[in-house]
Simulated scan of single mutants.
Amino acid sequence: MAWDLSVDLIKATVQLEQPLGNGTRTVGTGFLIDAPTPDGKPRTVLVTAAHVFDRMPSVEARIGYRIQNSDGAWRYDPRPLTIRDEAKAPIWTRHPTRDVAAIVIQAPEEFAKAAIPLSWLAQDDTFTQYALGPGDEMMALGFPRGLAANQAGFPILRSGRVASYPLAPSSVFPTFLLDFSVFPGNSGGPVFMAEGARRRPGATEAQEVQFVAGMLTQQVELSGERLEIGIVTHARFIRETVAMIDGVIPPAAPTPDLPATSTTAASTGTHTEP
């Protein structure tokens, strides 16, 4: 039976928020990764866009867990998440050149089980391996303007077409464009490929193509106008950020993002409390 990456990622994706004390809150998206320690001990890592945490000045944020009751119904159960020390210094790990952050968390057992394996994130050659390019459809999960799919707090699933070329290598093209509307609250959400049947170059049979391509980190703006194009940071940099928790230093910084003529704006934002 085919596995469903969409459902697995929905379960692993959470809303991140922090009240700002004036009736508003800042909201973003994150997702959980199962990333064991070097000695094999289980470990759950939350990843999101670094600017999501940057815009949360207090020591604690809230992470939007969902709990399934004995009758099968789900309820939203946000819990405190410490993101800064007592001096309000960040305790998350930040990638040195990309808008990616990672932090080890103690998730409820149900959520620890929902964390996706690190191996599901695209490798540097994944796009080339499957001949992915402009026009291919990818999915994105998030909480646009803090909106969830339902009262249980599940993320909203949307789709868009790859809008840039080429996609590899990530050392030269660390981000790519996705044609869909980006809203405050989408930052940090996973972008993934979930195609039921695709024939690789030179192959005679079609196969499933399912992997996490990257993380939504920005939107494209030009002269103050939103172009309804999202900027996706390659999964390679999520992998590198998780590895940094264990002291692994990423390789030298890649070249600047493209297109160079566009300005970009962070897609997290401030929202009125419901």
Rank of each mutant, 00 (worst) to 15 (best):
T13W: 01
M1R: 10
R98A: 14
A206I: 00
E225W: 06
P134A: 08
E273T: 14
R55S: 14
I67F: 15
T48S: 15
A2C: 00
G142P: 06
F53W: 09
G214M: 11
G23L: 05
D34Y: 13
G189Q: 07
A197N: 12
P251Q: 03
G142H: 10
D34S: 15
L157W: 01
D136L: 01
A168G: 06
R98Y: 00
R66D: 03
E205R: 14
E208D: 14
I229N: 03
E228H: 09
A61G: 06
T204W: 10
V14C: 10
Q219M: 07
P38V: 05
E110T: 10
R98G: 03
G269V: 07
F183M: 12
F183G: 00
A206D: 13
Q218R: 13
V209Q: 07
S262G: 00
A112G: 09
V45N: 07
V27T: 13
Q18P: 01
H95D: 10
D246R: 05
L227V: 01
I116Y: 09
Q129Y: 15
T26A: 01
P42Y: 11
P144L: 01
G133N: 04
G185Q: 07
M139H: 13
V182W: 01
E205W: 09
E225T: 11
D54H: 14
I91P: 00
G153N: 02
P80Q: 11
A112K: 04
T233V: 13
Y130N: 14
A101E: 09
L132F: 04
G269A: 01
W3D: 14
V100N: 13
R25E: 10
L46F: 05
P117Q: 10
A148Q: 05
T82Y: 02
H271S: 00
H51Q: 08
E273M: 15
Q18T: 01
D8S: 13
P166L: 00
D4A: 06
F154Y: 11
T255D: 04
L20D: 13
G23Q: 05
K113L: 12
E110C: 01
V52C: 08
V162T: 10
A203N: 07
I103S: 10
A73E: 09
S58M: 11
A149K: 04
F127K: 00
F31N: 04
F111T: 00
M138V: 10
Q123L: 15
P42K: 08
D54S: 13
L216G: 06
P274Y: 09
D99C: 10
P184M: 11
K41L: 12
V100I: 15
R94P: 00
I103Y: 10
T241E: 03
G189F: 03
P90Y: 11
A163N: 12
V59W: 02
R199F: 08
V232D: 04
A102I: 10
Q68L: 01
